[in-house]
Computed example of a mutant assay.
Amino acid sequence: MPIATINIIEGRSDEQKEKLIEKVTQAIHEAIDAPKQNVRVILNEMPKQHFGIGGESVKKMGR
């Protein structure tokens, strides 16, 4: 049972997250021939102040 864990920054719509789950599942299915019903996708959504680039939080950068 393949499990994909994806870390994303908060702010995406439910529709975008649903599409991401669908596309990642499809990619795993195609790449390793895993049955779609066996693929698990875990999205970890984090606050913007919990992710930094170049010494600043994404929140502070205004992203």
Score class of each variant (00 low, 15 high):
G11H: 04
M1G: 14
I21W: 03
M1W: 10
I8C: 01
V58N: 01
D14C: 05
N44D: 07
L20N: 09
K36C: 08
I6V: 15
G54T: 06
L43P: 02
I9D: 01
L43W: 09
K59C: 03
D33Y: 07
K59R: 10
E15L: 04
L43F: 03
Q26A: 12
Q26P: 02
P2H: 06
N7M: 14
N44L: 03
M61G: 03
L20E: 11
T5Y: 15
P47G: 06
K36L: 05
M46F: 15
A4E: 03
L43Y: 04
T5F: 13
G11F: 01
A27Y: 08
D14A: 14
I53N: 07
H50W: 07
M61A: 13
K19R: 15
M61N: 09
N44F: 03
V41A: 11
A34S: 06
E56I: 11
P35M: 03
A34R: 00
N7S: 13
L43S: 09
I8W: 00
M46L: 10
A31P: 02
G11Q: 03
N7D: 12
P2Q: 07
T5C: 13
P47Q: 11
I8L: 09
E30H: 07
N7F: 07
G11D: 04
T5R: 13
E45T: 02
I8V: 11
A4Q: 03
P2S: 12
R40E: 10
Q49S: 14
F51Q: 06
E22F: 08
K59G: 05
K60L: 06
K60S: 15
R12W: 00
K17R: 15
M61W: 00
H29D: 12
E22D: 15
G11L: 00
V24L: 11
T5V: 15
I53S: 09
S13K: 05
R40A: 12
I28E: 03
I21A: 15
H29G: 08
M1L: 15
M61F: 00
P35H: 04
E10P: 00
M1Y: 12
Q26N: 13
E56L: 14
E56R: 15
A31G: 11
L20I: 12
H29K: 10
K36I: 04
V58S: 02
D14K: 14
K23S: 14
I6D: 12
I42P: 01
N38A: 14
I53R: 07
E15G: 10
Q16Y: 02
A27T: 12
G54M: 01
V41P: 00
R40I: 13
P2W: 01
F51V: 11
H50N: 14
H50M: 05
K23M: 13
K23R: 15
Q49G: 10
P47L: 08
T25N: 08
H50F: 13
R63A: 11
K19G: 09
V58P: 00
Q49R: 10
E56A: 12
R12E: 02
V39L: 04
I42C: 10
L20T: 06
K23I: 13
F51P: 01
G62T: 01
S57F: 06
K17N: 10
Q37I: 12
P35L: 02
I32M: 13
I6F: 08
K59V: 01
M1Q: 10
M1V: 13
I21G: 15
P35E: 05
E10H: 04
V39K: 01
M61H: 02
